[in-house]
Protein backbone atom coordinates (compact mmCIF):
# COMPACT_ATOMS: atom_id res chain seq x y z
CA UNK A 1 0.00 0.00 0.00
CA UNK A 2 2.71 2.44 0.98
CA UNK A 3 4.63 1.73 -2.20
CA UNK A 4 1.60 2.34 -4.36
CA UNK A 5 0.83 5.62 -2.62
CA UNK A 6 4.42 6.81 -2.87
CA UNK A 7 4.36 6.11 -6.60
CA UNK A 8 1.94 9.02 -6.96
CA UNK A 9 4.32 11.31 -5.15
CA UNK A 10 2.53 11.33 -1.80
CA UNK A 11 4.97 11.02 1.04
CA UNK A 12 3.42 9.15 3.92
CA UNK A 13 4.75 6.68 6.44
CA UNK A 14 3.11 3.56 7.80
CA UNK A 15 2.89 5.29 11.17
CA UNK A 16 0.92 8.17 9.70
CA UNK A 17 -1.50 5.90 7.88
CA UNK A 18 -2.15 4.09 11.11
CA UNK A 19 -2.78 7.28 13.04
CA UNK A 20 -5.15 8.63 10.43
CA UNK A 21 -7.01 5.34 10.16
CA UNK A 22 -7.51 5.33 13.89
CA UNK A 23 -8.82 8.86 13.83
CA UNK A 24 -11.12 8.11 10.91
CA UNK A 25 -12.46 4.93 12.50
CA UNK A 26 -13.08 6.67 15.79
CA UNK A 27 -14.81 9.70 14.33
CA UNK A 28 -17.00 7.60 12.04
CA UNK A 29 -18.01 5.45 14.99
CA UNK A 30 -18.56 8.43 17.28
CA UNK A 31 -20.82 10.08 14.76
CA UNK A 32 -23.09 7.09 14.39
CA UNK A 33 -23.03 6.51 18.14
CA UNK A 34 -24.35 9.99 18.80
CA UNK A 35 -26.87 9.62 15.99
CA UNK A 36 -28.07 6.31 17.38
CA UNK A 37 -28.24 7.55 20.97
CA UNK A 38 -30.62 10.37 20.06
CA UNK A 39 -33.18 8.14 18.38
CA UNK A 40 -36.72 7.96 19.70
CA UNK A 41 -36.40 4.17 20.04
CA UNK A 42 -33.57 4.37 22.52
CA UNK A 43 -35.33 7.01 24.59
CA UNK A 44 -38.53 4.95 24.62
CA UNK A 45 -36.63 1.89 25.79
CA UNK A 46 -34.87 3.81 28.57
CA UNK A 47 -38.14 5.36 29.72
CA UNK A 48 -40.16 2.16 29.80
CA UNK A 49 -37.40 0.32 31.64
CA UNK A 50 -37.22 3.14 34.17
CA UNK A 51 -40.99 3.05 34.59
CA UNK A 52 -40.90 -0.69 35.27
CA UNK A 53 -38.19 -0.17 37.82
CA UNK A 54 -40.07 2.68 39.52
CA UNK A 55 -43.20 0.56 39.79
CA UNK A 56 -41.23 -2.19 41.44
CA UNK A 57 -39.52 0.29 43.73
CA UNK A 58 -42.80 1.81 44.88
CA UNK A 59 -44.17 -1.63 45.69
CA UNK A 60 -41.04 -2.60 47.55
CA UNK A 61 -40.89 0.64 49.53
CA UNK A 62 -44.60 0.48 50.31
CA UNK A 63 -44.49 -3.01 51.81
CA UNK A 64 -41.74 -1.76 54.11
CA UNK A 65 -43.61 1.37 55.20
CA UNK A 66 -46.70 -0.74 55.89
CA UNK A 67 -44.70 -2.92 58.26
CA UNK A 68 -43.12 0.08 59.94
CA UNK A 69 -46.25 2.20 60.32
CA UNK A 70 -48.15 -0.94 61.31
CA UNK A 71 -46.42 -0.77 64.67
CA UNK A 72 -48.26 2.46 65.34
CA UNK A 73 -51.64 1.92 63.66
CA UNK A 74 -51.95 -1.75 62.61
CA UNK A 75 -55.67 -1.53 61.76
CA UNK A 76 -55.04 0.94 58.93
CA UNK A 77 -52.24 -1.23 57.57
CA UNK A 78 -53.93 -4.59 57.69
CA UNK A 79 -57.53 -3.93 56.83
CA UNK A 80 -58.65 -0.56 55.68
CA UNK A 81 -56.33 0.91 53.07
CA UNK A 82 -55.07 -1.27 50.24
CA UNK A 83 -53.81 1.36 47.83
CA UNK A 84 -50.07 1.88 48.42
CA UNK A 85 -49.92 5.49 47.30
CA UNK A 86 -53.00 6.54 49.26
CA UNK A 87 -51.48 4.88 52.32
CA UNK A 88 -48.28 6.91 52.01
CA UNK A 89 -50.36 10.05 51.49
CA UNK A 90 -52.27 9.44 54.71
CA UNK A 91 -49.04 8.97 56.65
CA UNK A 92 -47.42 11.99 55.08
CA UNK A 93 -50.34 14.36 55.66
CA UNK A 94 -51.93 13.09 58.87
CA UNK A 95 -49.31 10.90 60.54
CA UNK A 96 -50.25 10.28 64.14
CA UNK A 97 -53.35 8.10 64.56
CA UNK A 98 -54.82 10.59 67.02
CA UNK A 99 -55.19 13.05 64.16
CA UNK A 100 -57.37 10.71 62.12
CA UNK A 101 -60.47 12.75 62.92
CA UNK A 102 -63.49 13.19 60.71
CA UNK A 103 -62.67 16.81 59.96
CA UNK A 104 -59.09 16.11 59.03
CA UNK A 105 -60.01 13.28 56.69
CA UNK A 106 -62.87 15.09 55.03
CA UNK A 107 -60.71 18.12 54.58
CA UNK A 108 -58.00 16.46 52.54
CA UNK A 109 -59.38 13.17 51.26
CA UNK A 110 -62.58 11.95 49.71
CA UNK A 111 -63.45 8.70 51.44
CA UNK A 112 -66.78 6.96 51.32
CA UNK A 113 -68.81 7.24 54.52
CA UNK A 114 -68.26 3.62 55.47
CA UNK A 115 -64.46 3.79 55.15
CA UNK A 116 -64.37 7.15 56.92
CA UNK A 117 -66.25 5.85 59.94
CA UNK A 118 -64.12 2.72 60.00
CA UNK A 119 -60.89 4.72 60.07
CA UNK A 120 -62.12 7.07 62.78
CA UNK A 121 -63.43 4.35 65.10
CA UNK A 122 -60.38 2.13 64.64
CA UNK A 123 -58.03 5.04 65.29
CA UNK A 124 -59.66 5.67 68.66
CA UNK A 125 -59.11 2.16 70.02
CA UNK A 126 -56.03 1.01 68.17
CA UNK A 127 -53.71 -1.63 69.55
CA UNK A 128 -50.62 0.05 68.16
CA UNK A 129 -47.80 1.59 70.16
CA UNK A 130 -46.67 5.18 70.45
CA UNK A 131 -43.49 5.54 68.40
CA UNK A 132 -41.55 8.33 66.81
CA UNK A 133 -43.20 9.00 63.44
CA UNK A 134 -40.73 11.53 62.07
CA UNK A 135 -38.65 9.09 60.05
CA UNK A 136 -41.70 7.22 58.79
CA UNK A 137 -43.24 10.44 57.50
CA UNK A 138 -40.04 11.36 55.69
CA UNK A 139 -40.10 7.90 54.13
CA UNK A 140 -43.70 8.41 53.03
CA UNK A 141 -42.70 11.69 51.39
CA UNK A 142 -40.00 9.84 49.52
CA UNK A 143 -42.50 7.31 48.17
CA UNK A 144 -44.86 10.10 47.13
CA UNK A 145 -42.14 11.93 45.28
CA UNK A 146 -41.22 8.74 43.41
CA UNK A 147 -44.87 8.31 42.49
CA UNK A 148 -45.05 11.91 41.31
CA UNK A 149 -42.02 11.40 39.10
CA UNK A 150 -43.48 8.14 37.78
CA UNK A 151 -46.71 9.79 36.62
CA UNK A 152 -44.70 12.54 34.98
CA UNK A 153 -42.54 10.04 33.17
CA UNK A 154 -45.59 8.08 32.08
CA UNK A 155 -47.10 11.22 30.52
CA UNK A 156 -43.87 12.02 28.73
CA UNK A 157 -43.66 8.48 27.41
CA UNK A 158 -47.23 8.76 26.21
CA UNK A 159 -46.37 11.86 24.27
CA UNK A 160 -43.23 10.35 22.80
CA UNK A 161 -45.05 7.18 21.76
CA UNK A 162 -47.86 9.15 20.16
CA UNK A 163 -45.30 10.95 18.05
CA UNK A 164 -43.10 7.98 17.18
CA UNK A 165 -45.63 5.17 16.77
CA UNK A 166 -49.14 6.66 16.58
CA UNK A 167 -50.86 3.58 15.16
CA UNK A 168 -49.33 1.17 17.65
CA UNK A 169 -50.18 3.52 20.51
CA UNK A 170 -53.82 3.83 19.47
CA UNK A 171 -54.10 0.09 19.18
CA UNK A 172 -52.56 -1.12 22.45
CA UNK A 173 -51.64 2.00 24.41
CA UNK A 174 -48.32 3.66 25.10
CA UNK A 175 -47.13 1.32 27.85
CA UNK A 176 -47.61 -1.97 26.03
CA UNK A 177 -46.43 -0.40 22.80
CA UNK A 178 -43.25 0.78 24.48
CA UNK A 179 -42.69 -2.64 26.02
CA UNK A 180 -43.01 -4.25 22.61
CA UNK A 181 -40.53 -1.80 21.11
CA UNK A 182 -38.12 -2.44 23.98
CA UNK A 183 -38.42 -6.17 23.61
CA UNK A 184 -37.90 -6.09 19.85
CA UNK A 185 -34.97 -3.68 20.18
CA UNK A 186 -36.23 -0.79 18.05
CA UNK A 187 -39.24 0.39 16.06
CA UNK A 188 -37.60 -0.82 12.88
CA UNK A 189 -36.97 -4.27 14.29
CA UNK A 190 -40.56 -4.48 15.56
CA UNK A 191 -41.85 -3.52 12.10
CA UNK A 192 -39.76 -6.30 10.57
CA UNK A 193 -41.05 -9.00 12.90
CA UNK A 194 -43.76 -11.45 11.84
CA UNK A 195 -47.00 -11.45 13.84
CA UNK A 196 -46.24 -14.85 15.35
CA UNK A 197 -43.05 -13.53 16.92
CA UNK A 198 -44.77 -10.40 18.21
CA UNK A 199 -47.37 -12.63 19.85
CA UNK A 200 -44.66 -14.28 21.95
CA UNK A 201 -42.39 -11.31 22.63
CA UNK A 202 -41.67 -11.41 26.34
CA UNK A 203 -42.49 -15.12 26.64
CA UNK A 204 -39.11 -16.33 25.42
CA UNK A 205 -38.40 -18.51 28.40
CA UNK A 206 -41.68 -20.38 28.10
CA UNK A 207 -41.22 -20.69 24.34
CA UNK A 208 -37.79 -22.25 24.56
CA UNK A 209 -38.90 -24.48 27.38
CA UNK A 210 -41.64 -25.80 25.12
CA UNK A 211 -39.22 -26.23 22.22
CA UNK A 212 -36.72 -28.15 24.31
CA UNK A 213 -39.18 -30.35 26.15
CA UNK A 214 -42.78 -31.37 25.74
CA UNK A 215 -44.18 -28.47 27.77
CA UNK A 216 -47.09 -26.51 26.34
CA UNK A 217 -46.16 -23.59 24.14
CA UNK A 218 -47.13 -20.15 25.44
CA UNK A 219 -50.04 -18.27 23.89
CA UNK A 220 -49.05 -14.71 24.67
CA UNK A 221 -46.12 -12.63 25.90
CA UNK A 222 -46.26 -8.93 26.60
CA UNK A 223 -49.60 -8.57 24.80
CA UNK A 224 -51.26 -10.48 27.64
CA UNK A 225 -51.24 -7.18 29.53
CA UNK A 226 -53.68 -5.72 27.02
CA UNK A 227 -57.06 -5.48 28.78
CA UNK A 228 -58.88 -7.35 25.99
CA UNK A 229 -56.76 -10.44 26.51
CA UNK A 230 -56.27 -10.24 30.26
CA UNK A 231 -60.00 -10.03 30.90
CA UNK A 232 -61.00 -12.59 28.28
CA UNK A 233 -62.05 -16.15 29.02
CA UNK A 234 -59.06 -18.53 29.02
CA UNK A 235 -60.23 -20.40 25.95
CA UNK A 236 -60.58 -17.14 24.02
CA UNK A 237 -57.16 -15.82 24.90
CA UNK A 238 -55.16 -17.77 22.34
CA UNK A 239 -57.45 -16.71 19.52
CA UNK A 240 -57.47 -13.07 20.56
CA UNK A 241 -53.68 -13.11 20.95
CA UNK A 242 -53.23 -14.29 17.39
CA UNK A 243 -55.67 -11.66 16.14
CA UNK A 244 -54.11 -8.83 18.11
CA UNK A 245 -50.51 -9.67 17.25
CA UNK A 246 -51.46 -9.61 13.59
CA UNK A 247 -52.88 -6.13 13.97
CA UNK A 248 -49.89 -4.98 16.02
CA UNK A 249 -47.62 -6.16 13.26
CA UNK A 250 -49.63 -4.12 10.76
CA UNK A 251 -49.61 -1.07 13.01
CA UNK A 252 -45.85 -1.25 13.51
CA UNK A 253 -45.30 -1.54 9.77
CA UNK A 254 -47.59 1.46 9.18
CA UNK A 255 -45.66 3.46 11.76
CA UNK A 256 -42.27 2.65 10.35
CA UNK A 257 -42.93 2.73 6.62
CA UNK A 258 -45.68 5.34 6.20
CA UNK A 259 -47.42 8.32 7.77
CA UNK A 260 -50.93 6.91 7.58
CA UNK A 261 -53.08 6.92 10.70
CA UNK A 262 -55.16 3.76 10.67
CA UNK A 263 -54.92 2.85 14.35
CA UNK A 264 -58.61 3.46 15.08
CA UNK A 265 -59.65 1.29 12.19
CA UNK A 266 -57.38 -1.51 13.37
CA UNK A 267 -58.74 -1.23 16.89
CA UNK A 268 -62.31 -1.39 15.59
CA UNK A 269 -61.52 -4.50 13.60
CA UNK A 270 -59.99 -6.12 16.65
CA UNK A 271 -63.03 -5.32 18.79
CA UNK A 272 -65.43 -6.60 16.15
CA UNK A 273 -63.55 -9.86 15.77
CA UNK A 274 -63.39 -10.33 19.53
CA UNK A 275 -67.17 -10.09 19.63
CA UNK A 276 -67.31 -12.66 16.87
CA UNK A 277 -65.01 -15.02 18.76
CA UNK A 278 -67.12 -14.65 21.88
CA UNK A 279 -70.25 -15.45 19.89
CA UNK A 280 -68.73 -18.46 18.16
CA UNK A 281 -67.16 -20.03 21.24
CA UNK A 282 -69.42 -19.30 24.21
CA UNK A 283 -68.47 -22.47 26.08
CA UNK A 284 -65.08 -23.85 27.04
CA UNK A 285 -63.93 -26.70 24.84
CA UNK A 286 -64.20 -30.17 26.36
CA UNK A 287 -60.88 -31.66 27.24
CA UNK A 288 -60.44 -35.06 25.68
CA UNK A 289 -59.83 -37.55 28.45
CA UNK A 290 -57.15 -39.44 26.57
CA UNK A 291 -54.97 -36.45 25.86
CA UNK A 292 -54.86 -35.22 29.41
CA UNK A 293 -53.94 -38.69 30.65
CA UNK A 294 -51.07 -38.89 28.21
CA UNK A 295 -49.81 -35.54 29.27
CA UNK A 296 -49.79 -36.34 32.93
CA UNK A 297 -47.89 -39.55 32.24
CA UNK A 298 -45.25 -37.66 30.32
CA UNK A 299 -44.83 -35.20 33.12
CA UNK A 300 -44.39 -37.94 35.67
CA UNK A 301 -41.76 -39.77 33.66
CA UNK A 302 -39.85 -36.53 33.34
CA UNK A 303 -39.75 -35.98 37.03
CA UNK A 304 -38.20 -39.37 37.56
CA UNK A 305 -35.40 -38.52 35.20
Amino acid sequence: MINSVNKYGVQITEEQIRERSKKLGESLAKKSISRASGKDDILIIQMINTLDLLKKTINLFSTRIREWYGLHFPELTDKIIEDHVLFSKLISIIGNRENFTKENLQDKFSFKDYTLNEIVTQSQNSMGAEIDLDNIQKYADLILSIELYRTRLENDLDELMNGATPNLTTLVGALIGAKLVASAGSIKKLAMLPASTIQLLGAERALFRSLKSSAKSPKHGIIFQWHGIRSAKPWHRGKISRLLSGKISLAAKLDYFSDKLLGDQLLNEVNQKIEEIKRKFPNPPKKSQKKSQNLSKKKRSKKRR
Binding site: R18, S21, K22, G25, S32
Partner: peptide, 15 residues
Protein backbone atom coordinates in the same frame (compact mmCIF):
# COMPACT_ATOMS: atom_id res chain seq x y z
CA UNK B 1 -14.44 0.25 23.47
CA UNK B 2 -13.54 3.71 22.20
CA UNK B 3 -13.31 5.12 25.70
CA UNK B 4 -11.24 2.17 26.91
CA UNK B 5 -8.79 2.00 24.08
CA UNK B 6 -8.45 5.51 22.66
CA UNK B 7 -4.94 5.80 24.14
CA UNK B 8 -3.77 2.51 22.62
CA UNK B 9 -2.15 3.26 19.29
CA UNK B 10 -2.48 -0.21 17.82
CA UNK B 11 -6.27 -0.53 17.94
CA UNK B 12 -8.44 0.89 15.18
CA UNK B 13 -12.12 0.79 16.19
CA UNK B 14 -14.62 0.13 13.41
CA UNK B 15 -18.41 0.28 13.57
Amino acid sequence: LIQNTSSRKNIIPIL
